[in-house]
Amino acid sequence: MSERIPVLRIGDVLLVSIQTDLEDQSVLDLQEDLAERIVETGAQGVVIDITALEIVDSFVGRMLATTAAISRILDAETVLVGMRPAVAITLVELGLSLGGVRTALSLERGLAMLGRAGGVGAGRA
């Protein structure tokens, strides 16, 4: 009964835009879907856009970190974009720094970052 988040493909990049407050099962489904789609499409990069998310708790945070780790094994780079300031402050307070996940301010920057692999600009959290 849980809805599935669409995974879009733009060139060799997969784009996931999370628009609503997700229940835990949808979060797990997304993680699974993404791994499958990476293999299926041979994508080089994954951009997860969380601009619309009002909170990221430890469950979603863990999914983001795990997804980044899984994609790396599957030879795709993950960039997390659009985290709101209040969400970032809360995550830090919660004790989650998402080590190893690359981040960018906006979708545009995230895509640009994947375009020039290893390029400078935004940070690695």
Partner: peptide
């Protein structure tokens, strides 16, 4: 310190 980490999470340095 937390500000610096939060900025990183948002994609800034």
């Amino acid at each position: 310190l937390k500000t610096v980490v939060a900025a990183r999470l948002m994609g800034a340095e």
